[in-house]
Amino acid sequence: MHSNSSSPKASWALKAAALGTLLFLHVPMWIIFLYTFTPDERTFTFPLPGFTTKWFGIAFQREDLWRALSLSFKVAAIATLAALVLGTLAAAAVYRSKFFGREAISFLLVLPIALPGIVTGIALRTAIGGLDIPFSFWTIVIGHATFCVVVVYNNVLARFRRMHGSQIEASMDLGANSFQTFRYVVLPNLATALLAGGMLAFALSFDEVIVTTFTAGQQSTLPIWIFSQLSRPRDRPVTNVVATFVILLTFLPIFFAQKLSAQSSDTEGESK
């Protein structure tokens, strides 16, 4: 390391190790893509014994998959919506006023993802069982919302804190009431944070399985469908297709959410 150069060069060993870690993180997911084309139905033989694209068509016609997919979509949509509302409210409350127990609120919201998922799952299961509530669409949604709120909350609160100076006061000073201030000043400032938080919450809910196992009863979301295939494989080729589909489906929102947060912190730096 040369102390006179402003950007030191990494040694080749460090570079190799970093690259190795990066490949370890990503290569396994590519392997699933590969397997969607295997003609082998019963094993995961490598090298692939041939090449076929028939599984896409077969997977496409599976009724149970479509049902699971649509259930997952509906659950994720409603849980995200609830998380957007609850998370934004909590963030606004914590941002705008100092009150006793502010720390406790952050703590309470982060608890569902800080504790092992099985704790949340079994707790909800106990409550559902103890109160004789029948398993339904809503038991899944309620479970998902508990851990989605914190994602929105964190994104929105961070944006509130980065919001430039006294914009809210300026707006009210210029004659806008609280509702107008929210619409013309707060919402445009929060827009990308809400979008990013919403997409992450959606992704989180869309492939959640641990809590869902305890709150779904006999219903099957897409992750539960995959889980059942993992423990007792029946439709390996179809599972490969579904897994690929899930990767692609979650990749885009996550990618854009990350880009969105990275960008907004960049522009923040420029305008300072």
């Binding site: 396994p28 992450l200 492939d207 889980f227 993992l230 899930v246």
Partner: peptide, 9 residues
């Protein structure tokens, strides 16, 4: 953030 299950799979 991407699917935990698929990564296990």
């Amino acid at each position: 953030w991407s699917s935990y299950l698929v990564r296990v799979y």
